[in-house]
Design a protein around this nucleic acid. Structure first.
Lengths: 222, 222
DNA sequence: CGACTTGTTGACCAATTGGTCAACGGCAGT
DNA sequence: ACTGCCGTTGACCAATTGGTCAACAAGTCG
């Protein structure tokens, strides 16, 4: 009873195992920077961790080094290898694959650290951003576009192919935009993510092939 | 010839009309902050404008005041009143209205200052952001959702109504995401915006009613 | 209990930040 | 050309920033 403060979960003040402390710092930094952006100060972060800011420099030689680690932590291995197989499972109907993939994917990324850090990085012009989107393009957008073309019964002329890519990006953007609305704009969104993905994929599969076939129709307004 | 520097467009160094100078500052600040974020410094901005940073404080008492002006400049009166009438023109088919509105809208907002500042503001938690999106919801999302419900032949039960809203947000997000890809992530996008809007609206109108009708089908996976 | 290792800290530094102010100097009006 | 208004500036200030370093103390080994 003489030290009643000891109840607030983590009142420890000193002498941690180095590995443990480092982990604690990276974890805390991920949260902190995702909230305030990478303009946040080392002192604030330290205060939040309950340590002195000098200690941060014991574990990371420079702020940039910490930031890099945060990038790694958040982006690296955010791609579940199982998704490769799933998206390529031509035995399953496309609808099934898309619904399952995007439910899983949205579930994996729809958290504040991920979305906010990703957007912060984009605004700051960090290249990790473009690298990640190239991966998405290669593994998701393009394969989906290819199957979309076949579904619409179009041969792969350059122009039509580009349109299929844009439609595929559209599906992706629509889903990611939900996360943006929630974590960047702070707006309340549809609580049932699975339902949202279901709706959106259905809309995509019902609408996109039709849009592709209708080329030259409604699009070319006077 | 004795003053050859005088050729680089605006080598003027002193004594502008106050109104003119103020305009110049707000204009420059809009560009500057949209590039580096609102963490940018007054000194940098001043250097970029070719004036001393003290002068900035002559025109704006504080940095915050300048930032507010930039917000106003960028967001205020970004809504073309003609859009109200257009969206409400029930004589025209919905497809026509949507295509025309979103072509115009995308054209109006698809510029770096707008998109980047909007996202910066969102991350910073500035309320102007939510205010703007409420306007979008009221003037675009909801009316479109209502017409979508009718198109799908569904009565307006709460659940179905929510779904229609999400689908409508989806269309909006898809289109805005194009601007994000371009101006936040710095990725090359479909060069023909009008074509993109045409495709996306077609996909929406072909797919969304179907998705709404199909409730309980593909969505409820085991 | 004392000594040694090492995780941790408070004090300090130089650079940068938002903001102030007295003094400078264009540019009328006469 | 002189004068005076006022747009403009350089020098300055306090607070904050990333980063350093000698000193402190928690835990362990004898």
């Amino acid at each position: 009873m003489s030290e009643a403060k000891a109840e607030t979960a983590k009142p420890k003040r000193k002498r941690l195992d180095p590995g443990q402390r480092e982990e604690e710092i990276v974890e805390g930094a991920s949260l902190y920077f995702s909230e305030v952006g990478f303009g946040g100060s080392m002192r604030d972060l330290a205060a939040r961790l309950g340590i002195s800011h000098a200690l941060l420099f014991r574990y990371f030689p420079t702020k940039e080094a910490l930031v890099d680690r945060v990038y790694d932590r958040i982006f690296l291995s955010r791609w579940d290898p199982a998704w490769d197989a799933l998206l390529d499972e031509h035995g399953l109907p496309l609808a099934e694959r898309l619904v399952r993939f995007y439910r899983d994917y949205l579930n994996a990324i729809d958290r504040p650290e991920w979305v906010r850090t990703f957007v912060y990085a984009g605004l700051a012009g960090v290249n990790i951003n473009q690298r990640y989107l190239n991966l998405i393009k290669r593994k998701v957008i393009t394969p989906v576009a290819v199957e979309l073309l076949r579904l619409a019964g179009r041969r792969d002329e350059k122009a039509v192919c580009d349109e299929a890519m844009e439609l595929s990006w559209g599906l992706h953007g629509e889903i990611f935009y939900l996360a943006i609305r929630r974590w960047v704009y702070g707006i309340k969104v549809c609580p049932d993510l699975d339902e949202f993905v279901g709706l959106t994929v259905t809309k995509f599969l019902e609408g996109a092939p039709a849009a592709l076939r209708e080329k030259g129709g409604r699009m070319r307004a006077p």
